[in-house]
Design a protein around this nucleic acid. Structure first.
Lengths: 290, 290
DNA sequence: TTCGTCTGTGAAGATCCTGTGACGTTTTCC
DNA sequence: GGAAAACGTCACAGGATCTTCACAGACGAA
């Protein structure tokens, strides 16, 4: 391989750089002086970084779980645009900073339109590159730190982002990281149907390839644990051909509504929902219960 | 106020530009030539934009619900940095693009660190500004889910894109994916007649072969479910030899029009419609009433 | 009114989708 | 270094959904 790595991997919570300040950056360039200076600077910041000397297939980039990629288009040769487009298409979350020699307005516009997040013209000061990378990464990341959001409640389940866990009656569901991310995502969108592709791209950070069953498998695992801990409720509902929807629904006839009603938030009439999905429920429950 | 506005306000759903491509942009600059060219370009893109000629207090910016702000620091004078910092602190979601005259690396780094999302050096090409604004907004905005579009209302039916479902009186119609796509398409074009070929190509993604009955079959399924859930209304109207038209029409004598009229919103001349389809309607009602 | 064409309808078969258990690989923790 | 846990992939079975077909009824032009 044409790369070198530094620093310990940093349990990147969601496929992207960690919640702390530590980033994973790759630099695709051949200008050894530039690389060296930049590398030193990043090291001082505690960023993981690796240098790539030759074009890397998008798939390989995916597996690097980067926060951002700094790339000199010159290294890519004639297929630069195609490469850029493919990569940005695959990893929309990845911060893509083009740092390359003199260019025309048209080229810069093209690059930005294809998905690049910033374009720096060489020669440039490494500090500016750093600042722009930070800017790009900062922007791509949701501002809220997970610590300070209050726990989500749904049915008997309590989802606590600060602990990466869900609880039922105080007992942990013992969710793995992926399982937790999934329930957090679903519950955060309570009521809405999330498409598989969306779930996948938000959890894994890149676009799902057709036929991938990972989401389904994790939904099953989640359901199993939820079912075991809270057997009288159904939480995850399948929408055939689309994806999944999270909504706590009691299996008991009419469980005193008030007692366990979910978070107050802006829900569009959960009451409705209860009734209106009657027929729906049958199907879903039938499906769920099997 | 020192600003001029174009375009009607457009209930920007979530503080960011709408789910479509329409953005709300403000330009804080005094270079009239630059402003004009940029304005023209944005207009062509259908963006709402306003020009600010003097520093605006952050609170005022908040109320503008912008997607992005393009600012020339020169206009801000000596308090530029403080202003920038305050604004970025207040509105981390706002895309902040600095577009200003020659600067030092230190200045650019400082600006980016304070929260600017991009920094363009004048003189620059308006197209590049546009592209960079797009890039900044694209990055800041979650991949644009269909979640935040408000439900469509027609007669007794409520179509909710976030749930991939239609509801009547709170009860789900239990539409399959295709059925939902169809009702969404038809209702989205309420009043207009959609040709089979168009429906087909928009739903299936490729052109319909002559003799294909798929559209008809799905219209029937939809009608069945609508009829069952909302028997006193007709929604889908056949236009012989052409295609279908969606319009909620009550079968009750004259149900005080106002009481049950559909969503208030921007109407595409319902009045017209009523008249011009007069002859048509006879036919339709006859057909429908069977 | 008559005929050719278009649309509504029900049903059957093909197709696609999801739930599930199992297995090999990678990561984490001793 | 080794065991355990977590992860990702696969194949299969059962369902849900889609597509196609044939026929009957409706429509429009002559």
């Amino acid at each position: 391989m044409t790369d070198s790595t530094t620093a310990a991997e940093a349990a990147a919570p969601s496929g992207q750089g960690g919640a702390s300040g530590a980033l994973r950056i790759a630099v695709l360039d051949r200008d050894s002086g530039f690389i060296q200076v930049l590398g030193k600077r990043m090291e001082r910041l505690g960023w993981e970084h690796r240098v790539l000397a030759s074009p890397v297939p998008p798939d390989a980039v995916v597996s690097m779980r980067l926060s951002a990629l700094v790339v000199d288009l010159a290294v890519l040769g004639p297929q630069a645009w195609e490469w850029l487009e493919r990569l940005c298409g695959t990893l929309p979350e990845l911060g893509m900073v083009v740092c390359t020699g003199p260019s025309t307005v048209a080229q810069r516009v093209r690059g930005l339109r294809l998905g690049a997040d910033d374009w720096i013209t060489k020669p440039c000061h490494p500090e500016e590159v750093i600042a722009r990378v930070q800017s790009v990464v900062r922007r791509g990341r949701p501002p809220a730190s997970r610590a300070d959001c209050k726990p989500l409640l749904a049915g008997e389940v309590e989802i606590r982002a600060d602990r990466f866990q869900a609880f039922v009656g105080g007992a942990s569901l013992d969710l793995t990281r992926r399982e937790f991310e999934l329930i957090e995502l679903l519950a955060g969108a309570e009521g809405r149907v999330l498409e598989r592709e969306e779930i996948y791209s938000r959890l894994w950070g890149y676009t799902m390839v057709r036929g991938d069953r990972s989401v389904d498998v994790f939904v099953r695992k989640l359901r199993q644990k939820l079912e075991k801990a809270s057997p009288r409720w159904r939480y995850i509902h399948t929408h055939f051909g689309i994806g999944y929807r999270f909504a706590a629904e009691s299996l008991d006839p009419q469980p005193a509504e008030a007692a366990l009603s979910p978070s107050g938030g802006e829900d569009w009439g959960v009451g409705d929902e209860r009734q209106l999905t009657r027929s729906h429920q049958h199907r879903e429950l039938a499906a769920d219960a099997r």
